[in-house]
Amino acid sequence: MSTGNMNLTLKVWRQKNNKTTGALVDYKLADISPDMSFLEMFDVLNEQLINKGEEPVVFDHDCREGICGMCSMFINGRPHGPKDLVTTCQLHMRSFKDGDTIVVEPWRAAAFPVVKDLTVDRSAFDRVIAAGGFISVNTGNAQDANNLPIPKMQADAAFEAAACIGCGACVATCKNASAMLFVSAKISQLALLPQGQPERYRRVQSMVAQMDAEGFGNCTNTGACEAECPKGISLENIARMNRDFASAKFVSEETV
């Protein structure tokens, strides 16, 4: 069993609710183990706060294995912290040094208002999906799964786009707070598959319209989203979405 020996200073964003303003508050932590996850380090902080009679820091988290997309801390200026291709829950304290000062903030974007402390409201993502991120097939409509062979390369490419966990790191890191990586990942997944073709151009128009309505910014090809995405979602998806969006005006008879 590991015993910890790291001493840390945390600067954590505290904000009571979306009606108040927030501020960074300093906390000292001692005896942190390098084998702890970043969120387990926050558990230690919260236990300490509760024992002192103070209110714990509220942060979103659930599966703690990097797949649910719920954890969302902005750590030292980077979403999900310093390591590439991991979520905050999979970030471990061995990525930090004894004596470090760590600044932890919530996702910052107009479309992701702060709810409390490090928790933000990402329901805008759900509304973008509801606008068209699906194939319209009711339960019971399906034919035998193997009646539709799909080349492996194509299926694998769709899977890679589908690996998005909807955490919002792409938005948080983008200077324009653009959601294009998230939106284009879903559009690509379905555009790459034969099942997605009937609604392909309708979908891209509806989802982009909803994305704009939610107040996400535009893409200026900086590529921070791809660099910070814990699942390695590729910028190519944005190119594909833009192509489909442009084509939609010519190819599709429907406008949405």
């Binding site: 699906f134 194939i135 097939v137 339960t139 019971g140 409509n141 399906a142 034919q143 035998d144 799964a145 193997n146 539709l148 062979p149 799909i150 080349p151 492996k152 299926a155 694998d156 769709a158 899977f159 589908a162 997944q189 379905l190 598959l193 099942q195 997605g196």
Partner: peptide, 22 residues
């Protein structure tokens, strides 16, 4: 068996062989 059919129809990218089948 119906579940697999339904999920594939929804666009769930299940693993495939080179022949394009599941």
């Amino acid at each position: 068996a119906n579940i697999i059919d339904q999920c594939v129809a929804q666009g769930v990218p299940l693993a495939r062989e080179y022949g394009g089948l599941l």
